[in-house]
Computed example of a mutant assay.
Amino acid sequence: MKIEIKNLASLQPAARDFINQMGDHTVFAFYGDMGAGKTTFIKAVCKELGVRETVASPTFAIINEYKGGDGRPIYHFDFYRIHKLEEVFDFGYEDYLYSGYTCFIEWPELVEQVLPENTVRLSIRETGNGSRIIENM
């Protein structure tokens, strides 16, 4: 998978392209620097999946739950504020990551050890011209 987002006008088409490439996968880990566009892209994907609620970074909550257009939950994680792996055990990460429902994870580096084996790992990076590239790692 490799998707280029050249500007904001191409964000929603890129989100649709991503959804078309998701296949049967449900857990997606997004790696990238601060400001690379992880949350912005996840918001666009959630919109394409029919989420009507406000999609925001769960930086302080760690996890936000949305309802997709099909009524199924979509889980959005931000592990930026996790200081030690034991913290993810406290909120029962297995119930989410192994639920079969769609999970989008920001800052997965901090929880690599507990990610399902079939997690799709994606990097988001900004290019010199300001576009974003999303690709498998």
Rank of each mutant, 00 (worst) to 15 (best):
residue 2 K to Y: 15
residue 3 I to W: 13
residue 4 E to I: 11
residue 5 I to V: 15
residue 8 L to A: 13
residue 10 S to M: 14
residue 11 L to H: 08
residue 12 Q to C: 06
residue 13 P to A: 14
residue 14 A to E: 08
residue 14 A to R: 10
residue 16 R to D: 01
residue 20 N to Q: 13
residue 21 Q to Y: 10
residue 21 Q to V: 04
residue 21 Q to M: 10
residue 21 Q to F: 07
residue 22 M to P: 03
residue 24 D to S: 09
residue 24 D to M: 05
residue 25 H to I: 01
residue 26 T to A: 06
residue 28 F to L: 07
residue 28 F to Y: 13
residue 29 A to S: 10
residue 31 Y to M: 02
residue 32 G to K: 12
residue 32 G to N: 13
residue 33 D to V: 06
residue 33 D to H: 14
residue 34 M to G: 05
residue 34 M to L: 15
residue 36 A to S: 14
residue 37 G to D: 05
residue 38 K to V: 04
residue 38 K to I: 04
residue 39 T to M: 08
residue 42 I to Y: 05
residue 43 K to D: 09
residue 45 V to G: 00
residue 45 V to Y: 03
residue 50 G to S: 12
residue 51 V to Q: 08
residue 52 R to Q: 15
residue 52 R to V: 09
residue 55 V to L: 07
residue 55 V to G: 01
residue 55 V to Q: 04
residue 56 A to V: 12
residue 57 S to F: 11
residue 57 S to W: 06
residue 57 S to K: 08
residue 59 T to N: 08
residue 59 T to W: 11
residue 60 F to A: 03
residue 61 A to T: 06
residue 61 A to N: 05
residue 62 I to N: 03
residue 63 I to H: 05
residue 63 I to C: 09
residue 64 N to Y: 03
residue 64 N to A: 07
residue 66 Y to R: 00
residue 68 G to N: 02
residue 68 G to D: 03
residue 68 G to V: 00
residue 69 G to T: 00
residue 70 D to N: 08
residue 71 G to D: 06
residue 72 R to V: 02
residue 73 P to K: 01
residue 75 Y to L: 00
residue 76 H to D: 00
residue 77 F to G: 00
residue 79 F to R: 01
residue 80 Y to G: 00
residue 82 I to T: 01
residue 84 K to R: 13
residue 85 L to T: 03
residue 85 L to W: 07
residue 86 E to R: 09
residue 86 E to D: 15
residue 88 V to S: 03
residue 88 V to W: 00
residue 89 F to H: 14
residue 91 F to D: 09
residue 94 E to N: 09
residue 96 Y to K: 08
residue 96 Y to T: 05
residue 97 L to D: 03
residue 98 Y to M: 07
residue 100 G to N: 09
residue 100 G to H: 10
residue 101 Y to D: 05
residue 101 Y to M: 06
residue 102 T to L: 09
residue 103 C to K: 01
residue 104 F to K: 03
residue 105 I to R: 03
residue 105 I to N: 03
residue 111 V to I: 15
residue 114 V to E: 07
residue 114 V to R: 07
residue 115 L to C: 11
residue 115 L to Q: 12
residue 117 E to G: 05
residue 120 V to A: 09
residue 120 V to T: 12
residue 120 V to P: 06
residue 121 R to T: 05
residue 127 T to P: 07
residue 129 N to C: 13
residue 131 S to F: 14
residue 133 I to N: 14
residue 136 N to L: 14
residue 137 M to G: 12
residue 137 M to C: 13
